[in-house]
Design a protein around this nucleic acid. Sequence first.
DNA 1: CCTACCGATCGGTAGG
DNA 2: CCTACCGATCGGTAGG
Lengths: 196, 196
Amino acid sequence: MAQVLDKKTPRRAEVIRAAAKLFSERGYHGTSMQHLGDALGMQRGSLYAHIGSKEELLFEVVEEGAERFLERGLSAVQMPAPASIRLRNLLIGHIETAIEHLDAATVFLNEWRYLSEPMQEVVQAKRDLYEGFVRAIIEDGIEAGEFRAEADVRFAATLVLSAGNWTYAWYRPGGELGPTQIGEKFATLVLKGLEA
Amino acid sequence: MAQVLDKKTPRRAEVIRAAAKLFSERGYHGTSMQHLGDALGMQRGSLYAHIGSKEELLFEVVEEGAERFLERGLSAVQMPAPASIRLRNLLIGHIETAIEHLDAATVFLNEWRYLSEPMQEVVQAKRDLYEGFVRAIIEDGIEAGEFRAEADVRFAATLVLSAGNWTYAWYRPGGELGPTQIGEKFATLVLKGLEA
DNA sequence: CCTACCGATCGGTAGG
DNA sequence: CCTACCGATCGGTAGG
C-alpha cells in the first residue's frame, strides 16, 4: 500500500533533478519512467515510492523553473533605481536563471503545456505575474521619460521575454561569455537599438 | 507488400497537414498514429499507404517549415536596399511566416530536435543558412555606418531570431494587429531601442 | 527499493 | 484503405 510520500527527502529531490534533465533533453512525452529509473539506477516501479505520478513530476519541475524566474524578477522590479537599470537587471537575471538552471528553465518554457488542469492554470498565473513585472518596469520608464513614449508596452515586454526565453535554444555551456555578460549584451541592444 | 508510395498525391499532403497540426498541439512524442488516423477518419495502419514512418512525417513537416522561412529570408537579403530596410523586411517576413504557417513553424522550431541523423543534420544546415542571412544584413549595416559599430553581430542576430522565433509561443489568432503590423512593431523596437 | 504483474497502447506489417 | 495481427513498451499497482 502507498505510504506517505516523502515530500522533502533528498532522494525525492534527486528524482526531480533527474526528471528535469531527461524532460529537457527528450521532452516529457519522449521520456518514459523506464528511462528515469535507468538514470537513477532503480526499477521503474520503485519511483512510485517517491512520487505520485509522472505528471506530478512534470509539475514539480515546471514549478521549480517558475520560482527561479519569479525570485529574480521580483528583486529586479523592487530595486530603487531608474527603469533602464531595473530592466537591464531583470534581463540579466532572466538569462542567468535560464543558464544556471537550464534543465528546469527549458521544461518550464517548453513542456508546461502538457500539464492538465488545474496544474496548468497554476503555472499560467505565475507566467502572467512575471510578464507583469516586465510591463511594470517599461511603464515606469515611459512615465519617467526614460523610454520612448511611442513604445508599445506589450510589444516591448514581449521582445524582452523573447530574448530571454529563447536562451535555452541556442546557449551551449563552455562559450567565451558568461551568463552575466550575455545578459548585458542583450540589455544594451534592447535599450539602445541597432541603429547608429 | 509495400508498393510505391504516393509522394505528391493530394491525400498524402492532407496527412502531412494533419500531422503538422497534431505535432504542434501535442508534440511529436505526444501524438500517436492512432490520433492521426482519427483526425483523418482512417485506420492507423492505413496511413502507411501514404508514408513510410512516423519520423518521415516529422521530417516532412519540419522541412516545410524550414523552406517557408528560407524563401522569405532569402528575398529579404537580396533586396537592393539599405540594411535597416532589409532587416525590417526579414523580421516582418519571419513573423508573417510564423503566423501564416503556425503549425509547421512551431514544429520546425520545437520538434526538429527529435529527428535522428541524418535528417537532423539536413535541418541544422538550413537553420545555419537562415542565421547567416540575418548576420549578413547586420554586417552590411555596420560596414555602411547604418548600425552602431559596437553592436555584436552574433548577439544582434540572436535577438532578431529570438523575437521572431518566440512568436509561436504567444501569438493567438484574432488579435487586433495583423502579422505585418506585429513585424513592424518589433522591427522598429530592435532598430531604435527602448531608450528615449 | 524489488519482483511480478495489470490492461492499454505503441509503431508498424502482411495480405487483401 | 481495412482487418487482423506482431512484439515491445507504456504508466502504474500489489505485496513484500
